[in-house]
Simulated assay, not measured.
Amino acid sequence: MVRWQRGLWLFFLPSFGLLAVVLLWPLGYAIYLSFFDYYLGSDARTFIGLGNYADLLSETRLWRSMWTTMLIAFGSVGLEFVVGFALALALYRLHRSAKVFSVLLFLPHIVTPVVAALFLKWMLASNWGFIDATLLTFNIEPQDWLGSPFWAKVSVILADAWVFTPLIMMVLYAALQGLDTSLIEAAQIDGASNWRILRHVIIPSLIPAIIFTISVRLMDVFRFFDIIYVLTGGGPGTATETITMYTYQLGFRMLEVGKASALGVITLVLVAALLLAINRTLNKTYRGGDR
C-alpha cells in the first residue's frame, strides 16, 4: 500500500467512531449483560455465565415465540416478495404512466407503520370496523380478525405486507431498469416462453437485488414490534408474540434485563445464520456457485 493510500484511513475514522458509538458499544454491552442476573433499576449484578441462555432455551414460551416469528416473517416476506415482484414486472412492462403508478403503489410505505397499524386496527375492529360492516351488509358473517389466534396471525402478516410490499416493488423495479435487454431478446428469438425467460434470464440477473431485499426485510421482520404492538399487543394470549415482543416483555415488563439481553443475542445469531443460508441457497440455485 503506497503512502497516500494509508492516509485514506483517516477519512474512515469518523464513520467508524460513529458506528462504534451507536452500534458496536450497545451490542458489546448487551452481550456483557447477558452473562449476568440483572434486573432494571437494581444495583446488584450476579455473574451466572450461560445461565440466562440455558433458562431461555428450556422455556416453551421462547420456542413458541420463535415459531410465531418464523411464521410471520416467512409469511409476510414471501407475500411481499411475490406481490412486489409481480408489480415490479408490471411496471417494467408498462411503457406509459409507469412513474404515476409507481408513486401511487408506493404510498402505503410512506405512512408511518404505527399510523398504518391504527388505521388497519380500525378497519379490522369487530362488528363496527370497515371490513366487518361491509361483510355484514352482504349478510356474510365476518371473522374475529384480531381476537382469533389464527386470524390475528393472518391480519399481522397482511398488515406488514401492505406497508412494506411497495419497498420491495421499488427496489426490484429499479433493478429491472439495469437488466440487459439483449438477453431477453435473444431468448425470445430462440423461442423461449415468458416463464422460461423469467426463470432463466430475469431472476438470475436480479439475484443481488433479490438477496438484498429479502435480507433487509427478514432482518426488519425479526425485530417486528410496532405494528404487532398496536394491532394485537402480542395477543390474543401469546398468539402473535414474536421474539421482539417477548424481549420487550422480559426487559420492560418483568425488568429482567440480563435475560432480555441474552434473548437479543440469540435473535442476532439466529437471523445471521438464516440470512447466510438464504444467501448461499439462492446463489447455488440460480448461479451454480458457492458465494
Rank of each mutant, 00 (worst) to 15 (best):
S58N: 06
M169P: 07
I197W: 12
G264Y: 07
M123P: 00
A192N: 02
I168V: 09
Y246Q: 10
A86D: 07
V114C: 06
L146E: 00
D220R: 11
G129Q: 00
Y248E: 08
A174F: 10
T69P: 00
A116L: 07
Y38V: 07
I140S: 06
K284Q: 14
V216P: 03
T213I: 09
L218K: 01
Y29W: 15
L276M: 13
Y32L: 13
I131L: 06
L146H: 03
M254F: 15
L270Y: 08
T267C: 04
R253G: 08
T69F: 06
G78I: 03
E256Y: 15
W145A: 00
P14A: 10
N52W: 11
L183R: 13
G289C: 09
L268W: 07
D190Q: 13
F35P: 03
T181N: 13
Y29I: 15
D220T: 13
I197T: 15
L172P: 08
A44I: 06
T244S: 15
L118K: 00
F16I: 06
V163I: 07
V230E: 02
V115N: 11
L124M: 07
A260H: 13
F212M: 05
A186G: 05
W151F: 14
P142C: 05
A117N: 07
I131S: 02
F225C: 00
S65A: 15
P113T: 11
P113A: 14
G235F: 00
A272H: 06
L62V: 01
E185P: 01
A88E: 01
T213W: 10
A88P: 07
V83G: 08
L268Q: 05
L206C: 05
L206G: 02
T240P: 01
I210T: 14
P236C: 08
P166S: 15
T240A: 03
L19K: 03
V271F: 09
F47W: 08
L33T: 04
I140W: 11
D43V: 11
L176W: 12
I189Q: 07
R45Q: 09
